[in-house]
């Protein structure tokens, strides 16, 4: 089956995000006083072929842990969906 994994990588909560802090300041300067915090991350789309959804989950988790994130400072979530070819 053809699948698309939408992967979101963010810095762990305990890790300071200077880019997010700069954007928070910029939003406040634009009077978006409602903004409490901004965290900046990465979004990746991985198209893949797998025999089953279970296998696809395993593959995506594996690639996230080995390469796509650095578990010392980052964490990830993903959505997986079957797509047409």
């Amino acid at each position: 089956m053809n699948l698309l994994a939408k992967i979101y990588v963010t810095l762990k909560g305990s890790v300071l995000d200077p880019q997010g802090a700069a954007v928070t300041h910029a939003l406040h300067a634009l009077s978006y006083d409602a903004v409490r915090d901004v965290r900046i991350g990465k979004y990746m789309e991985v198209s893949l072929i797998a025999a089953s959804e279970t296998e696809a989950h395993e593959l995506v988790r594996g690639m996230c842990e080995r390469l796509l994130t650095n578990p010392v400072i980052e964490t990830y979530t993903y959505e997986l969906a079957e797509v047409e070819q």
């Binding site: 810095l11 890790v15 300071l16 200077p18 880019q19 700069a22 650095n70 010392v72 400072i73």
Partner: peptide, 17 residues
């Protein structure tokens, strides 16, 4: 070396950006 796990920790973007 940190990415490869030969040394502990990680290197992030400079705080000043």
């Amino acid at each position: 070396l940190t990415e490869g796990g030969l040394l502990p920790g990680a290197l992030r973007r400079n705080e000043s950006l």
